[in-house]
Design a protein around this nucleic acid. Sequence first.
RNA 1: GGCCCGUUCGUCUAGGGGUUAGGACGUUAGAUUUUCAUUCUAGAAACAGGGGUUCGAUUCCCCUACGGGCUACCA
Length: 510
Amino acid sequence: MKDQVRVRFAPSPTGGLHIGGVRTILFNYLFAKQNNGKFILRIEDTDQSRFVEGAEDYIFSCLEWCGIKADESPRDGGEYGPYRQSERKSIYREYAEKLVEAGYAYYAFDTSEDLESKRQVTENFRYDYNSRQTLRNSLTIPHEAAESLVKGGAPHVIRIKMPKDENISFTDMIRGDITFHSSEVDDKVLLKADGMPTYHLAVVVDDYLMKITHAFRGEEWLPSAPVHLLLWKYFGWEKEMPQWAHMPLILRPDGHGKLSKRDGEKFGFPVYPINWYDKNSNFKSDGFKETGFIPEGFINMLAMLGWNDGTDQELFSMEQLIEHFSLDRIHKGGAKFDYEKAKWYNGEWIKQLDLSALLQPVKAIMNYHGIHNFEDEYLAKVIDMVKERCQLLSEFHHQGAFFFNAPEKYDTNSVVPKWSEEKKAFFMAFADKLQSANLTESAAIEAKFKELVTEHKLKIGDVMLPFRIMLVGDKFGPAVFDIAATIGTEETKNRIYKALEVFHLHHTNS
RNA sequence: GGCCCGUUCGUCUAGGGGUUAGGACGUUAGAUUUUCAUUCUAGAAACAGGGGUUCGAUUCCCCUACGGGCUACCA
C-alpha cells in the first residue's frame, strides 16, 4: 500500500510570487487532488536578509484568488508543523551535526570575505573535494582544535563533503534518467553561520519530516539535485525519498531567459497573479487580476503552458484539470509566454461563465470608473449583451459605459461630413414617435425607425450609423436597437437631441 | 569557461519509423453582423544542421549548432 500522496510548494517570502511559481503550485495542487493527497504550503524563510514584509500574506492572497486551498500551511495548520522554516530553526542543526559525526559533512571556518577574495584570485574557484584541502575547516585543522572552535562559538558553517568520484543518478518523472558526477558539484553549505539551514539542508529535512512523496520544482533546481540526493542517502532515508519532477521554465516572449519580475513592465503584461508592491525596494507590478483576468482564465492559461491532455481540448475548468492532469504529459522544453493567447483563454471563460460569477467583478469595475446607481439586474443585462466582445474584465467599462451615461464625445467624423437637414428632421420625428408610441421592445423600435426612414425618403444605411453614434458615441457595441431598448425611450430621445446639437455645431463649423 | 536540460508553423503544442505532419493563438482573405466584436469558411505558416541505423527517418543513435538553467553562508 502506497503512502498517501503529499506534495508541497515551498516559496521564500522574498518577493511576490510570479506565474512560474503559481504554475508549480497549480501542478502540485492538481496532482494532490487527483490522488486524494495533501497539498502543503511551507514557507522557506531561511534567508533573513532577504525577507520582505507582506510577501507571505501575498502568497496566501494569490492562492485564494486562484481557488487553491492548502491542506497544511502556516495558516491552516497541520500535524507536521511548524510550516515556517524560521520556526523550525532548532531542528536543522541537529541533523547537520549528525552528518558531521558520520563524516559526510564538516565544519568550515572560512568567512564569506575569505572566499570572496579566493574567487577574485582563482577563476572558477569552487569549494570542493580539491580546494577544501587548502581551506580552514575541520578536515584540515586538528580535530580537537576544530571542536573547541565550534564550542567556543567561532563563526562557522557546515558543508557537505562531496565524494570525489561518484556517479549520482535519479529518475525524474518528467525528464527520465539524469546523471551527475560528484566531482562537478561543490561542497554546498548546509548550515549557515547564523544557524539557519540553507535551502539544500532544509528541503531535505523538511520533505522527510513532512513525509513528502512527490517533489515538484522548477528546472533551475536540477543542478543542485545531486546534493539533495546525497543528503537523502547520507541520512539513511533513501526509501522515503520523494519522486522528483523538474518543471520546464516559463520563458520571456523573446526567448531570452526565464520570465522574471521585471519583464512585466518590459513587455507590457502582468507577471504576478495580483498586484504586488514591495515597499522596501519600491517595486510595483500589476497583477493579472487587476488587469482583468478571472481566475478560471488565468488557471486555464497557466495549465496549458507546458501541459496538454493529448486531445484538442484547450478549455479546462479546475475540476477538469484535476481529472485529466498527468505528469507524463508535461512538456520538457520551456514555454515562451504569449500574452495574446493568455487573453484568449480569459475571453473564452468570460463568454461561458455564469452571470453570477461576472456580476460582482464587473460591478467593481464600473464603480471604479465612477458608475454607480444602477440595479444589479440592469448590469446583468448589460453584461449579457457585451460579454462576447470582452477578453478582459476591464473592457466591460469601455464596452458598457454608454448603457449608463450618455456619450461625452462623439465620433463626429463618421457623421458630420454627410450630415443634412433631412437627417436632422428624421431624427427629430423619430425621437417624438418613440415616446408617443411608447416603444420598449427592440424589434418595435426598429420597425418604427424603418417606417420613418421610408417616410422621409432616406436610406436606412444613411441613418443607422448616426443613430449608433448618438447612443454610443462611437462605432462599436451591440445591435443599436437593442441598446435603445435597454437604455429606454426617454434616454434614447434625450441622447438624440443632445447629439443633434453637437452634430449641428460641427456641421456649421466645417 | 564547466556541468546539466532542452529544440515540430511567429507562439502554445499533437504526433511518431511509411501521415496531405493535426489543433489552438496570432495573421491574411471572404461570408454574416447596415458599427465593432463574436460566429463561420478558406489560406499562408514548422520537424535546427550533418552523419549514421534502416527498404524507409521528422520520429531511434551520435556529433554540431542554437537556446535555456546552474555555477552564493539566495531560494
